[in-house]
């Protein structure tokens, strides 16, 4: 049996050498350095601002509450390309710039979209593995993507009264203006779906 000194705080025994606490110290340093190549050196202030802005949207606040209640972990990844990802382990990855201090509207909407992906995962709605039927896989992928876009537009509509120009520019940059306007005019799910399908057809044709 190992001495308690070599047990982790949670009681698991992961160190099996009396000297391993030294290597652990160095290993942690190495890992931290490795992390620096991906994540912002001081992400917390920006994360707080992103959350604060998103909470100005009723839809965004609800998505954030749900994800945080399940142990959401946010990673701001240094990336020139705006993108986001969510994993079943409640991890949310969002692109940010190293020297960024204020959130961009396009990033706030992307953050909200990623939170909706987290919610999809909580509801058990995920893209099947590679071995699944390709048509079923594509169907689920498109349904998930459209649902994400719809929620990004909902957040945009909530925020429009506060940040009209910024929201419009962000929605235009995503290329979601038709879906956004359809939602704004409450044209219904079928119209939104048709707009999405038409856009997908155009992309394939291009």
């Amino acid at each position: 049996m190992m001495n308690d000194d070599f047990k982790n705080k949670n009681g698991t025994e992961s160190l099996n050498s009396p000297y391993s606490h030294l290597s652990s110290t160095f290993a942690r340093k190495d890992l931290k350095e490795e992390d620096n190549q991906y994540t912002l050196s001081d992400a917390e202030p920006l994360i707080k601002k992103l959350k604060s802005k998103l909470r100005e949207s009723q839809t965004g606040a609800r998505l954030l509450d749900v994800a945080e209640s399940r142990g959401l972990k946010i990673h701001l990844i240094k990336s020139k390309k705006l993108q986001s990802a969510a994993t079943p382990k409640m991890e949310l990855f969002l692109a940010a710039e190293e020297k960024q201090t204020e959130p961009y509207m396009i990033q706030i909407l992307e953050f909200g979209g990623a939170l909706r992906e987290i919610e999809q995962l909580l509801l058990g709605y995920r893209i099947p593995d590679d071995g699944a039927d390709p048509l079923e896989r594509a169907n689920i992928a498109h349904t998930k993507f459209l649902d994400k876009i719809v929620y990004m537009c909902k957040i945009g509509l909530d925020l429009e009264v506060l940040y009209s120009d910024d929201v419009k520019k962000a929605i235009d940059a995503f290329g979601y203006e038709d879906i956004y306007n359809a939602q704004k005019q409450a044209l219904g799910e079928d119209v939104v779906r048709d707009i999405y399908l038409e856009a997908q057809k155009s992309e394939v044709a291009d």
Partner: peptide, 14 residues
């Protein structure tokens, strides 16, 4: 390329 900051972003299955 694994690091804490990447968490489970790159699951080999996907």
């Amino acid at each position: 390329v694994k690091a804490n900051g990447l968490g489970n972003l790159f699951d080999p299955a996907t």
